[in-house]
Design a protein around this nucleic acid. Sequence first.
DNA 1: TCTGGGGTCCTAGGACCC
DNA 2: TCTGGGGTCCTAGGACCC
Length: 397
Amino acid sequence: MSRTILHVDMDAFYASVEQLDRPEHRGRPVVVGADPKEGRGRGVVAACSYEARTFGIRSALPISQAWRLCPGAVYLRPRPRRYAEVSEAVFRILGRYTDRLEPLSIDEAFLDVTGSDRLFGGPAAIGQAIKEAVRRELGLVASVGAADSKFVAKVASDLEKPDGFVVVPPGRAAAFLAPLPIRRLWGVGPRTAERLSRVGLRTIGEVAALRPGDLEGLLGEAGEHLWRLARGEDDRPVEGGAEAKSLGAETTFEEDVFDPEEVRRTLLELADRVAWRLRRRGLRAGGLTLKLRGADFVTHTRAAVLPLPTDLGEELFRGAVALLDRVPWRSKPVRLVGVTATRLTAEGAGAGQLDLFAAPGGGRQRELARALDALGERFGAGTVTRAALVGDRPAKG
DNA sequence: TCTGGGGTCCTAGGACCC
DNA sequence: TCTGGGGTCCTAGGACCC
């Protein structure tokens, strides 16, 4: 029995939200991302309006390059909380059409509307209704793809952006995909595309025409999966969002750092941020990963299992500092540090009670952390901060 | 003019146990 | 002193996605 799957993808999401909230920016090139600092800024473009794209600006472009291409654009820092709010409104609209809804990121989702056909009409009618509702109720534009599999629906939604709507009828998937470049295959990035092009494979159709097993010889087990996608064979179900497996924070220094004390201070800030997010979501970290990138862009990670799961900044910080000694970094300047909580468990699950015995004062530390969280929620993040973070450099927001 | 920050998944190799 | 194979868990790095 053939399924009907929609992929809904918001167009230029962050930039569109900014233009929605600031009418004076409508019709203008808008770039959301790092501070360009007149061309000397570090970081990349997170999102940009279609007006900005006419200058050659794209997502993930270094912000310094964006500045060169269009110094007159409107440059804005991301406002994640606002985007999350609009995202929720989008998902509420999508939820009217099916409960088989799988969020893929903050601004896109799969919908299995196989059973909804009779109620709302065919895929063309449902897709149109969703686009209209998003436009009418939120003032935003979505692109939609419809097909009998997730992969083909996703490719379809991307094909005529912005404001695209492409329906691939059942049985037409292979023909629809054949002329497209291999880079469109989900899981083929720059590296894999390069390997494939070296053996003369340029289009999805060329991959689909291989014999079974040919691609495995080249790419290992992932090869068979890609071969099936190329033929339009994808029976993965649309399923609700999975539990998060990790939760982290990282930051790139404005200038490379030599001072170990500044590295440590930043780790404390990151550990506090991660711990706060853990507490807010009722999670504890059973493990910890430290990430450190040198000025040479070589990145190292070191991981550890914590003696007991925690949601306290102090404990994450202590773990991170211990890992610092295992990273080969002291000879070179540091570009980036990060702290990621892993092995997440729900608060109260497992051995939580043992904390009181194993970590004297842990209970009181948590009480303090919660009290500070409440102040932060009421008066804004950063209202209360550690003395260790108040100094020659302001804490980053 | 270099290359963010949030994630997921896969792989290879080593430790350890039976 | 030499000899297996299998299974599981863990880590570090890397590819990929938005």
